[in-house]
């Protein structure tokens, strides 16, 4: 299985980190610019989480669509699958959101994303004394650890998605 790209958002919805492994369809053919692409991805996340909280079939007292929710409140969603890719989401209690686009046959990645947050993001970014929380960052150490982590979990077998896309 391969990965396409990774977005990390802070609690305000600003994209603090973006990494791309393989993206045959450029941003120009989609949202236009990278900043717009990131905003659109956050919008998709935001709307889907409201959508799920309102639709939740097991909750008798559904919130009305559009009522403000606290982080982690209501029904959360894990991923969506389209005809060509799978988009995996994780929101942690501090409001950091991870969005990882993978190959569409990827299994449930909730635990992998949680481990990515715990072992990579917290270790290499949050524990960095020079890092201001909630600000965009660039770190080679983080990138290396991220790649190693994904490879270890079998998520960076890029030739598969490259073959599928060509």
């Amino acid at each position: 299985m391969g990965c396409f790209n990774l977005y990390i958002f802070n609690r305000q919805g600003t994209c603090i980190y973006y990494h791309e492994w393989f993206r045959p369809k450029s941003v120009k053919q989609g949202a236009g610019t990278l900043a717009d692409d990131q905003k659109q991805m956050f919008g998709l996340f935001w709307t889907l989480s409201n959508f799920c909280a309102t639709l939740d079939p097991k909750d008798q007292t559904k919130p009305q669509l559009g009522t403000p929710r606290k982080i982690g409140q209501g029904c959360k969603f894990k991923s969506f699958t389209t005809s060509s890719y799978k988009c995996n989401f994780l929101e942690v209690p501090s409001g950091i959101k991870l969005v990882l686009n993978t190959h569409r046959e990827a299994p449930d990645l909730t635990d992998v994303l949680q481990a990515l947050y715990d072992d990579i993001f917290v270790e290499y970014v949050v524990k960095n004394p020079l890092y201001v929380p909630g600000q965009p960052f660039q770190s080679d150490q983080f990138v290396n650890a991220l790649n190693a982590f994904l490879r270890q979990n079998g998520l960076l077998q890029q030739q598969q998605i490259m073959a599928a896309a060509s």
Binding site: R23, Q29, M41, K58, T81, T82, S83
Partner: peptide
């Protein structure tokens, strides 16, 4: 938003419940 061309939209959405 698809990183690959030729995407036709969401087919399955997975949530907690």
């Amino acid at each position: 938003l698809s990183p690959v061309p030729g995407c036709t939209g969401i087919e399955l959405l997975e949530a907690d419940t």
